[in-house]
Amino acid sequence: MARKNMIEAIRDALDVMLGADDNVVVFGEDVGYFGGVFRATEGLQKKYGKSRVFDAPISELGIIGAAVGMGAYGLRPVPEIQFADYILPAYDQIASEAARLRYRSSGEFFAPITIRTPCGGGIFGGQTHSQSPEALFTHVAGLKVVMPSNPYDAKGLLIASIEDDDPVIFFEPKRLYNGPFDGHHERPVTPWSAHPASEVPDGHYTVPLGKASIAREGEAVTVLAYGTMVHVALVAAQETGIDAEVVDLRSLLPLDEETIEASVKKTGRCVVVHEATRTSGFAGELIAVVQERCLYHLEAPIERVTGWDTPYPHAQEWDYFPGPGRVGAALHKVMEA
């Protein structure tokens, strides 16, 4: 057991899987010799060699297309897309190919690939280094979509994703790489070492896909969140004094509807929070699920706190990012209803 930040936990997961399975290969832009622009693959090429961990040309469709071909051969590729903002050139290979290969071939071919990609804002990343495109992937049948919020989950979920025989989009909130972030940008950054979830076991362990976790137990209202927004929701509960139950979804697809249902039936109120833009965002799906499963237990309309329906701006970072103030206001609103 050692204290690790999220980058170290991710690197550890890759190291564990490269060591455990000769078919695991890691590649992407700058991931080889240099070790990745976020250091997530540092030292891996030296340890496992250039045929296991290597640099790729700047072609996202090439990276994913190659991974699909490798998966068809029998490898277990873990490609990286440098920023989730740049995953779109690979969308055809992900949505039309990786996601459908098993279906269209009756399981004869499949794509056991895990696409790692840093996502999310709160870092002055502007329009093309801050996006949260998860809803573009939760809408695709055949994909699994995962987003951890802490180092322990990041390692366990990544190992589970790599071992999974279906294609997984593994979103890494880059704002959480070095420490938890609750949206209080005016305060100094805290490192992960002060957080209990930075206790990361050595070696192999998994966190199951499709299972949410309760980040904070509460009775008054359920907050459905994932990634950075888990930490924002936790601080909003603390600051408002509202006894919120914060559900960290961890997997968006498949979704742990049972945990969501149990929590909302207990609290009778629900707030959904994500960084992504609102219209047709994943919150729309979550609200539909809550409405379908918990309507007669609801005591207030479901609230959602999301990014605005604009591209992610630069100078207006903190007016855009759904911080503890906006989440707190939503908590008050559902409690007053």
Binding site: R52, G62, G65, V68, G69, M70, Y73
Partner: peptide, 17 residues
């Protein structure tokens, strides 16, 4: 066109192994 890129990936896998 998708399979043209995948063929290259499959061949890379054969070389890797």
């Amino acid at each position: 066109g998708t399979q043209f890129m995948q063929a290259v990936g499959w061949a890379m896998a054969s070389a890797i192994k």
